[in-house]
Design a protein around this nucleic acid. Sequence first.
RNA 1: CGGGCUGUAGCGCAGUUUGGUUAGCGCGCUGCGUUCGGGACGCAGAGGUCCCCGGUUCAAAUCCGGGCAGCCCGACCA
Length: 577
Amino acid sequence: MRMSRLLLRTLRDDPADADTAGHALLVRAGYVRRVASGIYTFLPLGTKVLHKASAIVREELDRAGMQELLMPALSPIELWEQSGRAKKFGSDALPAMVLDVRGGRFVLGLTHEEVVTSTVSAEVDSYRQLPLTVYQIQTKFRDEARPRFGLLRGREFLMCDAYSFDVDKAAMVVSYDVAKAAYLRIFERLELPVTPVEALSGAIGGDVNHEFMVASPIGEDHFVRCEKCGYAANVEAAAVGPPHGDGPGADERPARRRVATPDAPTIEAVVALLSDPEIDASRTLKAIAAFDEGGEPVVVLVPGDREAKLPRGWRLFEDEDFAAHPELVRGYLGPVDLGVRVVADASVVAADHAWVVGANEPGAHLKDVVLARDFDVHDVGDYVVARAGDRCTRCGGDLELVRAVEAAHIFQLGLTYTAAPGAFVMEGATFTAEDGTEQPFWMGCYGFGLSRLLAVLAEAFHDDHGLCWPPSSAPYDVHICAPGSGRTPAVRDVADALYAELTARGVDVLYDDRDVSAGVSFADADLVGVPLRVTVGARGLERGIVEVRDRTTGEVDELAVDAAATALHARRDSPAR
RNA sequence: CGGGCUGUAGCGCAGUUUGGUUAGCGCGCUGCGUUCGGGACGCAGAGGUCCCCGGUUCAAAUCCGGGCAGCCCGACCA
């Protein structure tokens, strides 16, 4: 591509609305432009990178035996009503965009379990057609509460989503492992270090699932990793081991007493009000009202300085639930003499000190409350969100906390969309098994954020001067600069010839044929970040050479003019890194 | 959804407090000339619904009211 013809304008200043270095560079270097909040145009350079990444995704998924198809972005709401997920629209978990148009009400697809399940159900009747995994690369829409970080969280984004269909659980696990391995190969080819972590499944459903996390300072997620045994999990899902401690001692402790705490419904407010050097948030108990999977009210206790984590299927109390249960006083909940089932995190039971707890009446708390003496718990479990320094449940090692971007997320859906009671079951999602019986499909689904990947790559691969693409995702293989070509015919002739020869050999070249100063040409080359820059100039031609500079390492080599094309072609195929 | 900040040329910004000629600056853009291997310089130009609607006033980018958009922070509850 001749740069004089490329739809490209580089910017000298960071755009005012860019909040990360990577995104600022994608805008400055002319890869993307914002159209509206969370909505972007991919200019030709950005589109090239999307195509390069998509090609890798397609190659690896095809190689894993998957088949590409393309489903509509618009789907009739009836499909979502059938599965029951329409009821979740508007929530954070399922922020769907819904459209009333001629012909009825449609949903702009934010994920395609319903569509793919009805499609496959209509085409597959027999176990002989299984296993089957299909995928698509398509634009998705989500009504995000707050789009941010450029391409990282948009309202419209490009995604690769795959769906597997199997005869039973064991076969599903095989398909899942195949997809997981394929995704790992994709990240390897993109040169992005990724960590698969155990995670929560949210509104998608299913049990086993993994997120593919890329460590990054702009990540919106955190995962914990055990340095010793390699266990890795999202903090929301991580199992946390009980801390050391013997539980409350048999020693004499002051009796519990009531203290007035008006207008102090939060832990911070209570601690501030008591202003007792002995009492910080860790000496208070958070008591959280929720419904368990059976719909029964339950109160969960965690230390006041910890974030709580609810088991699958549990649901927090909302305003109307508190209204319906006046005995549970919002902001002043405590375990003493509470007529509701109480469960506690293991760290609560292991602690050997007294607690400050809500008194179950507005404006009052209880001090010096001791487990077993003043209250009992019906069950002990793992109810806290992991944090750095917690112990690994597998090996007892220390967990470290890593900030990361969720680049992909894969799920073992099982029968969630086909037969599981109370799940998002679609009609007729069955096949005839070998024994002649009708059986539901066992499904998996596998999502990979492609436009988000652009943001992740830009964040991972840049320096002060611009982007530094790895060859696998770079928009071009080679960038030719020809300073002085506008007034030195020999330079122009050699550069033109090199461009023509490389292009003929299938090397993808960005040729800066603009009549601009050397400084501008080099600065733009740095900004755009093509892996190899070739400089054809009068200075080198006097010695019969051109210069090759590696954008990432800064290493400079010299090549004889007449051998340059051959050498660059060879280097493109096996980058010397 | 709550709070804060912002909206002026393609991009980055000043001007708004205290209303007053023809609304400025840098980058970018066009033309001519000089220069030119790390974002050159001179001269001459082009480019504006000052976010929108309404109001106050002789006069509004500036004051008032309402709206919209962007960015940031927070988001249940403990």
